[in-house]
Design a protein around this nucleic acid. Structure first.
Lengths: 232, 232
DNA sequence: CGGAATCTTGAGCGGCTTCAAAACCTGTGG
DNA sequence: CCACAGGTTTTGAAGCCGCTCAAGATTCCG
């Protein structure tokens, strides 16, 4: 639960990329970053909570996080992984106050750049390109939700599970000698794919028999991402 | 298939309301409307087609339409009804060209106000309030898709069907002496709720027995919207 | 009246979930 | 080094929701 603020040291790695910063000059960027604060969070810390007023806009700098939403019935629905460079908290950009639509939770130790409502909004007027980029991100989220809805409607439990594993491998996987490693339990997989723990176990076992992946307690090693993609 | 363009006569009924026009002065509004053209379409005409380049931005003026999206497997997924004052085609607002995410089809004879990409984009810069309103609409669509996803995940076939009927009654229903009338077949209902034709028939029959609604060939009369809401 | 579309009802089935029970780690503390 | 406790994974059996298929009844219209 250690939350550390650093006022200075907003220097990003030189290879850092974000859609948000596209086509912005070095000077403009400096002005934008000057209005942010850096926040260091630990695993499972909540970066924004749905239904609460959208008071801040954020960009993940390091680590990873998950974007999810509560469904009636106490269930959490996984939407996607947040990787470095991804932004969230679009609600804070609206002139009138809107609540966050989703919850973002750190999946590892992570650092996040945070702009307060009052800090980010003037920047949108000052840098039209920034506003463009933000709109482009919003469009991306629309597209994401539309795709999730379609997938939910037309995919089977097996396909959803395969896709979740493939996506997770791409975004939060560590490459290891024998494949891509993921620190996920069967239960976590099942929640993300919205499948029962047992269904998850059964399919994972089957894929293990086929040599597509390998599962040990709390860990998963994807050996053949290609074959997984075929199932999704 | 008669498509008529009228260059003049962009006079809207005095009681016409659209979220898009909120807090815009009469003069600004005139300037905005001046850049639009009015289009009259007949039932089943397609107003925008997903995956095609987002070349125009639209507002429904009269009649109604449906917003839908194709799912892999040839299925059409119903998203919501479009009523007078609703806008769509946000893809046309992006500086870089983006395809439409959804398809909009007229559900009756309808009139639509249409702005070309090149016409609407300068207006966003000229009238900041217009841009705000557009962002607010975009946020509404995000919220809509999120809700649809949640409902799809946690609702049963029965609940989806009940909700679809309740929503349709509110947006495209005619009030009649014995309830709210809808021109919908069981098959249409089942497609909208993404339920088999048979499941739809079974529940509708049951609700008819309970006196909640009345179904005749090609028509549906909702007698007790309140009881329907309870099921959703 | 005949034909086409719509609606109804029953029977069977498949995909997933739920439940029960057991096997299997892995870290902890004696 | 062993035993134990907690979380994790496996497997089978039963059940349920909603779909598919078949077949008939109803309504509408030319």
């Amino acid at each position: 639960m250690s939350t550390v603020f650093q006022k200075q040291s907003l220097n990003l790695p030189s290879d850092f990329y974000s859609r948000l910063f596209e086509e912005l000059s070095r000077a403009d960027l400096r002005a934008i970053l000057a209005k942010a604060r850096m926040r260091i969070v630990s695993r499972n810390e909540v970066l924004q909570h749905e239904d609460e007023p959208g008071s801040h806009f954020s960009m993940l700098v390091s680590g990873f996080a998950d974007l999810s939403k509560a469904a009636p019935g106490g269930k959490r629905v996984f939407l996607r992984w947040i990787s470095p460079g991804d932004v969230f908290g679009l609600a804070a950009l609206q002139p009138q106050s809107h609540p966050f639509l989703t919850t973002v939770t750190a999946g590892s130790e992570a650092s996040v750049m945070v702009w307060n409502r009052d800090a980010i909004q003037p920047l949108l007027d000052r840098f039209p390109k920034l506003r463009e980029n933000v709109c482009s991100v919003a469009n991306g989220y629309l597209s994401l939700l539309a795709d999730l809805l379609m997938s939910r409607i037309s995919e089977t439990a097996q396909q959803r599970l395969a896709r979740i594993i493939a996506e997770s491998a791409q975004t939060i996987g560590r490459s290891a000698p024998n494949g891509i490693e993921l620190d996920l339990t069967n239960e976590q997989l099942s929640e993300m794919a919205d499948v029962s723990r047992f269904t998850s176990s059964r399919f994972v076992s089957e894929w293990q028999r086929r040599g597509i992946l390998k599962k040990t307690r709390g860990k998963l090693i994807v050996q053949s991402p290609e074959q997984l993609q075929l199932l999704g």
